[in-house]
Design a protein around this nucleic acid. Sequence first.
DNA 1: TGACATTAGTTTCATATGTAACTAATTCTG
DNA 2: CAGAATTAGTTACATATGAAACTAATGTCA
Lengths: 172, 172
Amino acid sequence: MSTEPDNTDAERRRAPSPPDMLRLDSFLPYRLNVLAQVVSEGLARIYSQRFGIGIPEWRIIATLGEFGQMTARDVGAHSRMHKTKVSRAVASLEERGLVERRANEEDRREAFLSLTPAGLKVYAGITPLALGYAERLTEGLAAEDLETLERIIAQLTERSGILQQEPPEIDL
Amino acid sequence: MSTEPDNTDAERRRAPSPPDMLRLDSFLPYRLNVLAQVVSEGLARIYSQRFGIGIPEWRIIATLGEFGQMTARDVGAHSRMHKTKVSRAVASLEERGLVERRANEEDRREAFLSLTPAGLKVYAGITPLALGYAERLTEGLAAEDLETLERIIAQLTERSGILQQEPPEIDL
DNA sequence: TGACATTAGTTTCATATGTAACTAATTCTG
DNA sequence: CAGAATTAGTTACATATGAAACTAATGTCA
């Protein structure tokens, strides 16, 4: 009941004893996760202490800083954050005077969010630090590799979205 | 290349009139995070329901499945999980009879962890699903791009480790 | 040897998170 | 139009998490 015959043998190294061998060090979901986590933490270390905000708050500030005015729903959709996470982070930012809400008179379920002047200041303070971090992170890479990376990330992100739709019921 | 990489916030307090623009859609830490999350969730969707285990548990099973016998410390170091997360996940797996501990008689602080036969069965069940998922995820990519991706991920992971000013307790 | 430091692992505690239930507003259907 | 269904957003609750304190074993060094 163990094996599935659907592994391409091209890059499949037949490994030790028992079942299908999974090499974590070359397993893409795992590698991606480790990298993303380490990068996120490294970046957060730069701004969290200094500006007293966490990752979800920063994402909201960055999104509003870039797009100006959005509903909570759109912020969440764009940054792929759960709506309760967005709701709580926005509440916290509003309390601290960094974000303000303006009710949409045409649909009063939603509200437009935007940065206050104080919020813009935080945005302006963190942005160069964030850009500097990304710059230091990638400064060893060839420009061409960086381009390839961005293209592949886009492809994979789209593809993984598509995979969600497919029937999660495979055989077995 | 654009700005000074060493901007202490004292120097950067006043922002350039329009703040340095941050485009989230091409900001690497952000893109990486979105991708990793979406991929992780997609994979977890496949095994969590069916086998009743979460991400930390799966990582431990995968690590022990690959390396056979390790201490909790080494599992954590290899999979980059916090030691309390490892501790709790191992406790849960032991309770369910998927992992067993064998005290190290030469150093009784630590114990060797390994998969039980039942744990091996879960490992054998999930592994082909995980490999299949990764396969479907990347099947649209050119083999060459995939190689490049893996190389860059390795480079960035190492680089981001170096960028940590205050290394917590992670080696590798 | 005997304090002191270190290490593996656990537990405590406060916080962060997601699911599901909820409110209020809007849209859809007949 | 009424009532059902949907949607934006919040809240309640249970779980997951990490920092720090703790336990027990080992290492260090005078």
